[in-house]
Each structure stands twice: as structure tokens, then as C-alpha cells.
Simulated assay, not measured.
Amino acid sequence: MAEEAMPAMSFDKPAYRFAPSPNGLLHLGHALSAILNHDMAKKTNGRFLLRIEDIDLARCTPEFEEAAYRDLSWLGLDWEKPVWRQSEHFDDYRAALDRLMEMGLVYPAFLTRGEVKARVAEHEESGKSWPRDPDGSPLYPEDDRHRSETERQLLIAKGVRHAFRLDMHKALRLTGDALKWTETGDGARGEITAHPTAWGDVVLSRSDAPSSYHLSVTVDDAAQGITHVVRGLDLFEATAVHRLLQELLELPQPVYHHHRLILGPDGKKLSKSEGSTGLAALRDQGFAPHDIRRLVGL
């Protein structure tokens, strides 16, 4: 897709964004989110933006990105050009990470996934439960948070691979624990109290990825002037982390609208491996855009 000059950002209008990762084909769940963002932008005379979240360079491909453009165009959606690609903004994420480092809120984390898994298994074999985040993943152990700076530098000098994590306790000492966000979606509404501690010391950057989802979307939403974040209910709890990062980095706070999910036959949210619900497959079967709106309840 040919690039065009970046237009001047218009931050005086409502702005909505649809942000797929090009690591598979879009399905009905993506259609619901994209259409909602598009229609809400049109209704408010706002902007509809498309963001390609391609931080995972190993799994994201140009072919899937082009397929997303075809599917969204077929649905009759029109977005501002050019598209915002996260792979073109790694320096922005690094700058945000550096700022948090300068504030003393970030530490290198050396434990591998395998080591964490083994630690959790050993702990739970004794009959004790290991704390887990809202997605069910075990919280990262505290070992690295308590390492001395000398020990950290020795490990880095030896070439030990590491991620960078946010020290949640230090961060909340700066912001306080009274974080809230405004919610207008399909679940709870109104002023929602954020509980970022539920996520533990979240990853901000990995050795194989220059930024995490949490950090990059927070930086991107501010840079793009997003006023309304419309996304699935599966990301409702993650908003607590984004609100914390917004406060730490002194970024504006959008309004949040978490919408219902489209579930598969197994009762779980759709995945990109669900070929039967893929937009391209449905198009090939003769479905029209208005049929897709009907299938997602619009």
C-alpha cells in the first residue's frame, strides 16, 4: 500500500481507532470492533483511524496487513491515510521507557518463562496458590525487583537476556491508588476504579520485542490524539495498566468503551485460527457487508 504524507493531526475532533495485529486474518470479532469505531466516529463527526499493531516482527506479515485492508474496504469502512504502524515508532516507545527508567520505576528481569513456570509449579505442589493476573497468568516473582544494581549490571555484562518490567509498588507510590477511568461500554459504566496491582510488575519491553502491548498502545493513543478507545471486553481489566502509564507519562486520558465479544461455538472469544468466521472466508461464501453487520448484531 503506497505511503502518503502524514496529514496534520486534528486533535480538536473526537478520534477513534481500530488496531489489529497483522498476524492472521480478520474475523467477525474484528468486524464488530472496526464497525463500531467507524460508526461512532461518523456519528460524532470525528476521525476514524487505523493502527497496525505489528510489534511482533516475527509473526506479523505484510500479507496479513494487506488482507486486513481488503476486508475493511469490503465492509465499506474508510479511514485516514496513511496508516499508523507501530513498527515505525519504536523510537517513541524507547523514549517512554527511558523516561520511566529515569524515574527509577523500571528494572531488568532475567527469569525466563520456563523458570517462572517451574517456580510456580513447585510452589503450587506444596498446596499453596500462586497469585495470578486477571487473564490467569502467574504474576512475575519478586527476585529481580530486589536485586542490587551491581548484580543487575553483572548479569547484563554477561549477556544474560532480560526484559524490562515496571516496579508496580514504586509506580503507585507516585500516582496513588485512586486511579479511575470513564467507561461507556457494554459492561460496567461510569467512573471505574483501576486496580493495576492485579497485574503485578508488567513487562514494558522484551529482548525479542522493543515494546510491550501496554506501553505501545498508551504512547500511540496519546500521539494519535485518540479521545475514545473502543475495544473488546477482554481488555477491560488491562485499562488499569494503561491508566497508570498515562499518569506516569503525563498523557491525556481517553474515554473507554469496552464492547461485547463475539464468541465461537465453544463459548470462547474468536481467534484468527477460526476459519469459519474469517471475513475473507465469509466473503468467498457469498456474504455481503450488510450480512456481516447482521451476524455481529448491528
Rank of each mutant, 00 (worst) to 15 (best):
M1D: 15
A8K: 10
M9G: 01
L26C: 06
L28Q: 02
G29C: 07
R47P: 02
F48K: 06
I55V: 14
E63N: 07
E66R: 14
A67D: 15
D78Y: 01
K81L: 12
K81G: 01
E88C: 10
H89C: 02
R94C: 02
G104M: 12
G104N: 11
P108K: 08
R113K: 14
K117W: 04
K117S: 14
H123I: 04
S126A: 15
W130N: 10
D133H: 12
D135I: 05
L139Q: 12
D143T: 13
R152F: 03
I156P: 12
R161V: 06
A163T: 10
R165G: 06
L166C: 08
K170L: 14
A171M: 10
A171E: 03
T175W: 01
L179V: 04
E183N: 05
T184S: 07
G185T: 01
R189V: 15
G190L: 12
G190F: 06
H195M: 12
V202Y: 09
S205P: 02
D208C: 09
L215G: 03
S216E: 03
V219W: 02
D220W: 01
D220R: 01
A222K: 04
G225Y: 03
I226H: 00
V230H: 00
V230E: 01
G232L: 07
F236Q: 01
E237Y: 08
E237S: 15
V241C: 03
E250Y: 01
Y256K: 03
Y256G: 01
S273P: 02
G275T: 11
T277Y: 04
A281N: 13
G286P: 07
A288I: 07
P289T: 10
R293G: 06
